[in-house]
Amino acid sequence: MAERLPRDKQAERRRTLTEFLRQEAANKGFDLCRITAPDAIPEAPARLRQFLEAGRHGTMEWMAETEARRADPRVLWADVRSIVLFGMNYGPESDPRALQAQTDKAAISVYARNRDYHDLIKGRLKEVATRFAARAGEDVKVFVDTAPVMEKPLAAAAGLGWQGKHTNLVSREFGSWLFLGSLFTTADLSLDEAERDHCGSCRACLDACPTAAFPAPYQIDARRCISYLTIEHKGSIDRALRPAFGNRIYGCDDCLAACPWNKFAREAREIKLQARPDLTAPDIAFFLGLDDAAFRAHFSGSPVKRIGRARFVRNVLIAAGNSGLPEFVPACRSLLADPAPEVRGMAVWALSRLMPPQDFQALAALAKGEEDADVVLEWQAAGE
């Protein structure tokens, strides 16, 4: 459509459509809306290849399977001409790391303390996209996190912020607390300038990581990241890393919360995600007692529900084992008979840390009927 117009009319159309899009984004509660070109991240393919070759994606096989589409937006959709990046502030009211001192409480990442942000962001993006497509007469596609889109490099190229040393996006206005979404379109839009890196010599985010998941600035090894291990990773978790989890049972905010740029973050508006009171400082004891039905009911509409009850309780047992509180022993002991092997194995580990050695050894007879190899290894390691 635009190609048939004179050059000055094309420029006017770009400006008009861009202004319309930004206004629609603001109307739907997005704090930032910037635009970049599909070829704006030429360094992305090589960086992604290095990340994958080093095995730093852990068990996230889907990253390797979608490598080509992830590295180049034009492979994902050949007709895309402009990529619009949206940012929504989800900054917490206080530093979430303060909860780590309360060992009887469980720490859930800030972004997961209410309903699934994928649903919130995508619903609003679709509304913006529908109105824009009708106005522009162009094709559009929207993506939020789950699609093979490298949103953080694209967001940096569009000027929403820059990728900090913790590899997450940092904004001068909102610090490290931004949800991202993208809109691909066949329309020609006015492009924004990339944001330069403002990290300087600061390494607060790197030093804050409990498990040393950053081999170097701007590099992350997911295999050591608590967010990856508590959410994406199935099965057993490296025994050497468990003590560093503290009471973090779903995700980890430490590197984000440590960023000095957070002091400029604005308070979330009413339309943004507000934390559920029962998820801001929940009791570990309550979570230890959840069966599958109770887990599903409690986390209905929450991103936590996606990891399933077994993986969730596995994480809670690590927090219980790190708490040093004998009051958790009865609940942990009852989970030795749980149907899920990852739960039984972590119950063994938690009890080995909470019970006096002689009392724990008295439980060893329970290991004789165990058939799962990983759980057997937990019994053996705990008895050493």
Score class of each variant (00 low, 15 high):
F20C: 05
R113F: 03
V375I: 10
P210A: 11
A337G: 07
G246P: 02
C209M: 13
N262M: 09
A71G: 15
R115A: 11
R13F: 05
P73R: 11
F312I: 08
D207S: 15
A133Y: 04
E270S: 15
T130E: 09
P6Q: 10
L317W: 06
F20G: 03
G29W: 03
A294F: 10
Q163H: 06
R306H: 14
E327Q: 14
R353W: 06
I83V: 15
D283A: 14
A364G: 09
G383R: 15
R135T: 03
A54I: 10
H233V: 07
F360V: 09
G58Q: 00
P326R: 08
A268G: 11
V348A: 05
T146A: 14
G308R: 08
R135L: 00
T185P: 06
K9A: 10
L351W: 05
A265N: 11
Q361V: 13
I121G: 01
A310Y: 03
G175C: 08
V343D: 00
D116I: 11
R22T: 02
P45A: 13
S82V: 03
R131D: 04
R113D: 06
L229W: 02
C33E: 05
Q10I: 11
A25S: 09
Q23I: 03
I271G: 05
R69L: 11
A222Y: 14
V304D: 00
D372V: 09
A157M: 02
M1N: 04
C332A: 10
P210W: 05
D104W: 10
L180S: 06
S82H: 03
H57D: 06
R97L: 05
A212P: 08
Y117D: 03
F30A: 02
Q23A: 03
V128L: 02
A310E: 07
D95L: 08
A319P: 08
D119H: 12
S109T: 13
D253C: 08
G159Y: 08
S190D: 11
E232W: 14
D119F: 01
P260F: 07
S334F: 05
L76Q: 02
L85K: 06
G161V: 06
E65L: 12
Y250H: 06
R22Q: 09
S201P: 07
P38A: 04
R266C: 03
P356A: 15
V170E: 07
E378A: 15
D292E: 15
